[in-house]
Design a protein around this nucleic acid. Structure first.
Lengths: 192, 192, 192, 192
DNA sequence: TATGAATGAGTATTCATTCAT
DNA sequence: AATGAATGAATACTCATTCAT
């Protein structure tokens, strides 16, 4: 038990260290030596928990993405009206990103980078399936434009990354009003 | 003249080589040795044109961003109606990205990455000033919501990156119809 | 008893694993981790049976050499005529190498390599003492040239290594005829 | 010119360093770091002259083998009688090994080790072609047994390795008499 | 302007070995 | 007797950068 806990702690420390380092200087700054030192562990120990650097990054991606979508769909009730559910999910996502800036920043960095390999990227994609299903329902109920889910995603969820980035860089702070405006734009872009 | 041209060619070749390499494997794959080899030049020669690797990346960013905005505003006429101008700019940007996938991919990679240093990022931002001014005019003319330009950008321009990415990965091809849908969503998200 | 047997099995498995690995890629390929994995044992377990890697290799050498010489002298009868005994031993050795290619290959690799330490090498040398005595007898009986036993060994036994190597690499297969020729050459080189 | 000489010197120093280190502790002791330090050069410099460690070893093998055979056939005259030529070559080889113990020891280590890759081994083999042709002539002239050249080699040349090894370890010194005996055994093993 | 050669510090990964259980 | 976890030091190799020419 104690042993197992220690192992879990080490694994977690390694993931956390990687997250921090990648955020601060990109994947190139997150050398295995630095990850090890940050996690207070020998470089060799990393390889007890991960196959190699790519695996470490992939696993981190999946775990962060999972945390993110778990939060996003935490109170999702398929029977609720589409717009209500959509609003809940949207604000859950935004709140996750606001409350977990490191995780948000990491996910943003993964988006347009060859950091993550394709299979892992696909695996991550499956996590937001419920959102796609909700949108589909909205289309059927004539609430949402009958356009590709990729378009719907591009104009409602994807802009968050930019807004969070501007927020972090103090160029455009997100508060109750701006969040409201942002959501309104998201909804306006897809509603019929 | 011939000598000067040769120099320019070399500089251009170096930038092009960097672009290609960064696109294919991220910044970590674009080692100075590889850049030199790809540009058919000695590694030492790079340092005649750029101070160091960071400078090389920064300059590439500025040049690509400049090409991009030059195209975007190529036919911009301040006296034209807001929506017409906005539409022109929007499609110019999209066409640039579709016609220059390498440049588009590179810019996308720069967005959420510590690759580019902050001053250079700011410099890049100034290039789209005309768009911000156009939006401001739209706000004044009660055509566009009275919200932060960052929000306007987030919901009209930023989604392009995602759409181009999906297009490149063959997950959601962009054609006349989908482009039209995309623009409509962009406009819907900000129009009053 | 069952417990003891299990121990012996493990030790044997470790030696066998080492043999295989060294044969396939030299001593550098036979890492303790790989030896352990091949023997289906924890790395730490190796150190219950052997002091360290050098000891493991040394012990393997001695055991293989012992097997080899046991076979060589299995039917040795000191009273038999010199040439008959010599022939028996020669073919026994050859047959051992042909029937146990892994052991043969390992011994060959040990011959001119600093893999085995000097004391262990000496220990291995004592195992073929009976052959040296037989040769001495042959010298006394005026059947064999009165030259150093090292010379006698060099021209009768040592060439086997080369022939086995060529056989293994399919460059010069050993069959009844070529074996006969080989023995003839061996004998011709030392007979008076 | 001076530059080129410096390059050649470095390459030579690297090969020499490798030779020494491999002789003293096998290929596993000849780490790139040690080779570099021994040659008084940066580790990175090795890779200016050799593709990787395997290439370094391969090249060393070829160069040493070339030196060896150059010496062996230095005074070879195809028109001379077979036995005379054979004797010249045999003593040339032996003298090379006696005068260049490091090279001899290295070649011995290469014989039964996976150190050298197969293509390079084949390349090395071609260097002793003249010896095989000489033996063929001896067979035609009814001076040498009509047996495979591999057998002829095994009983005349290959034993040198063992004798040199014993000589080096002071177990059986080679002097004029023992060399004469050795050659006699070699010849006796193959002559008709 | 342009270069090939050179490098010390760094890269990801593996090593032989130990230790708490 | 046996182990999985752990490690500091080592591995082969690459890096961004400099320098003599």
């Amino acid at each position: 038990m104690a042993l197992l806990q220690k192992s879990i702690d080490k694994r977690t420390a390694l993931l956390k260290a990687t997250l921090t380092l990648v955020n601060n200087g990109g994947i190139q700054e997150a050398s295995m030596a630095k990850v090890a030192k940050t996690a207070k562990v020998s470089p060799a120990t990393i390889y007890l928990y991960f196959q190699n650097k790519q695996d470490l990054i992939n696993r981190l991606y999946i775990e962060v993405k999972t945390d993110f979508t778990n939060m996003a769909f935490s109170d999702y009730t398929p029977n609720n009206p589409v717009k209500l559910s959509f609003e809940q999910i949207w604000f859950n996502m935004m709140n996750f990103k606001l409350n977990n800036p490191d995780e948000a920043s990491f996910l943003a960095q993964c988006d347009n980078t060859p950091m993550i390999d394709e299979p892992t990227r696909q695996e991550g994609l499956t996590k937001i399936q419920p959102l796609f299903e909700l949108m589909e329902r909205g289309v059927k109920e004539d609430l949402i434009k009958n356009i590709s889910p990729y378009l719907l995603y591009a104009y409602t969820i994807y802009p968050m990354t930019f807004l969070i980035n501007m927020h972090k860089r103090n160029l455009h702070p997100l508060n109750q009003q701006t969040l409201k405006d942002a959501f309104q734009s998201a909804w306006d872009s897809i509603k019929i």
